[in-house]
Design a protein around this nucleic acid. Structure first.
Length: 498
RNA sequence: GGCGGUAUAGCCAAGUAGCUAAGGCGGCGGUCUGCAAAACCGCUAUUCGCCGGUGCAAAUCCGGCUGCCGCCUCCA
């Protein structure tokens, strides 16, 4: 059972065989002209899952995710906002990295910026000129597409086919309309770097070749990015890289499907997008993660409140099972249930929907055995298995702090006093004294507080004071804590996820 | 126009020849209960866009048609 990945280059599922003992992965990150939207996060999530799975399989992994921080759009923004391009770029990079951190997206080993690798870029351009694959015209340098015989291999296009649909603007400076700029002469007021061809800046594409080769070597294992980058971006990267080195560039090309909004691709250029920061206001990182992993990475995924709410309900089902008190201490070093099935799913081109279905199967299996003493060990092993898989998939344990519960408790206490039930309060609070004394941190305080309120409520229920009991239930519900009464007279609660 | 992808239940989504077509959401029924459900259990596709073909056998392979999405210009 080996890992297989779908390679866009061959359009086939291929067994993963690394080139060296450290797997090199390059992810095309953002052109940082604006803040990150949900589509960008999906691409990052693919890198995250791929990296996590490779690490799980025992590989060492070096990951690179670039930022293209000099380009036409950012320069336009500079003119519009009268803000230096570097500030615009770094501001958006920061927003992106913060969002990734919140989502527990594993950090790339390096986040290189185009602007900080001019030497490598200029050297690569020079190399292309020296080998006759590029030519200089009035400070611009263009790559000769027709000189590279394999051009179009990745996107399955030929230069002649492209010609038929030609929407590309022919430039007087280009020898052929399909030649693309690897270096652009700077216009007045634009940022520039000194080069053998005068003041200028890199064209789009060349930075990715230069930076990936710089950090990962001229040939490396995996290149990832959104499907929309296949042409022209990745096609051009391949052409210029192989032209310069005569070596294979990246071996596996992985492309994720886009996120759609009302059926159409999310894209910042059209203004048709939803910002990740906005999304994180309403949904927790785990829910966003489940939402994204519910669909296999190559398929497109619709962004909607309905889909997110669906993920929220689904995640609650897992979280509800794991919150059982008996799972505070779980057995270590167990063989997880359904490990072969899980591994097989993930090895099959990162089939996360299948992998998740195994987790849900385990939840059902565990729930069936709930409340039976003789199955306690099995239940714990199931819980441990679920946690094991959740960790592999990058889910985190979220600790909720319910500070607002203090107000609820105050109100309940006052109401008790008003109804002359001081003794009831003292009895129950007394029982909790030891527990409260042994608290290590805040995360333990609030569950205890909830349990204290539930105990008070249950006493009131026994006294048939349902008005008061319902009041407590209502107050807790206001804070997303929903109470339900079990058969033993004990009540449990469930925290509604955000 | 060229190229690529996709079509599976009310919705989402796995499955690419052979046991009863995963899983999730929703809905329905039940459990429990003073009430309650936001918990738990069960049920929920004789059938995989349409037509034809090849196989003993097809959602899965081949041909044709239709719908949707995308790339060919900046895009994750």
């Amino acid at each position: 059972m080996a890992l297989k990945l779908y390679n866009t280059l061959t359009r086939k599922l291929e067994e993963f065989v690394p080139k060296k003992d450290v797997v090199g992965i390059y992810t095309c990150g953002l052109t940082v002209q604006g803040p990150p939207h949900v589509g960008h996060i999906r691409a990052a999530m693919i890198r995250d899952i791929l990296t996590r799975w490779l690490l799980h399989l025992g590989y060492k992994v070096a990951t690179l995710e670039n930022f293209t921080d000099v380009d036409d759009k950012i320069i336009e923004k500079q003119k519009e906002n009268k803000t230096d391009w570097r500030i615009i770029a770094e501001d958006n990079i920061e927003k992106y990295i913060q969002a990734c951190d919140k989502l527990n997206i594993i950090k790339a080993t390096v986040y290189p910026r185009a602007s900080q690798h001019m030497e490598e870029i200029i050297n690569l351009v020079q190399r292309l000129i020296d080998k006759g694959f590029a030519y200089e015209k009035e400070g611009d340098v263009y790559f000769k597409v027709r000189k590279f015989p394999d051009y179009g291999k990745l996107s399955k296009k030929s230069v002649d086919e492209l010609m038929a649909g030609a929407r590309i603007e022919p430039s007087a400076l280009k020898e052929d309309p399909f030649d693309f700029a690897v270096w652009k002469a700077a216009k007045p007021g634009e940022p520039y770097w000194l080069s053998p061809w005068g003041k200028g800046r890199p064209g789009w594409h060349i930075e990715c070749s230069a930076m990936s080769m710089h950090y990962l070597g001229e040939s490396f294992d995996i290149h990832t990015g959104g499907e929309d980058l296949i042409f022209p971006h990745h096609e051009n990267e391949i052409a210029q890289s192989i032209a310069a080195t005569d070596k294979e560039f990246a071996h596996y090309w992985l492309h994720n499907g886009w996120v759609t909004l009302r059926g159409e691709k999310m894209a910042k250029s059209t203004g048709h997008y939803f910002l990740i920061d906005e999304l994180l206001k309403d949904y927790s990182p785990n829910i966003v993660r489940l939402y994204l992993l519910k669909t296999q990475y190559r398929n497109q995924i619709e962004f909607s409140e309905e889909r997110l709410d669906e993920a929220k309900s689904a995640y609650s089902r897992i979280a509800d099972y794991l919150k059982e008190k008996e799972f505070r201490e779980l057995p270590k070093d167990i063989k997880p249930f359904m490990l072969d099935e899980f591994t097989e799913a993930m090895n099959d081109d990162l089939n996360t929907p299948k992998a998740l279905s195994i987790i849900f199967d385990l939840v059902t299996k565990g729930n069936e055995k709930l409340g039976k003493k003789e199955y306690e060990n099995e239940r714990k092993e199931i819980a441990a298995s679920i946690k094991y898989y959740l960790t592999i998939l990058g889910f985190t344990e979220e600790i909720e702090y319910h500070r607002e519960l203090m107000t609820v408790f105050e109100d309940v206490r006052n109401k008790l006093r008003k109804e002359h039930k001081n003794k009831l309060l003292d009895d129950i609070a007394g029982d909790f004294l030891d527990d409260f004394m042994s608290i290590k941190d805040e995360s333990e305080f609030f569950p205890m507080m909830i349990n204290l309120l539930l105990r008070i409520r249950n006493r009131l229920r026994k006294e048939k004071n349902f008005e008061f009991a319902d009041y407590i239930r209502k107050r807790l519900a206001e804070h997303r804590i929903h109470v339900y009464d079990g058969k033993t007279g004990e009540s449990t609660y469930r925290v509604e996820l955000k």
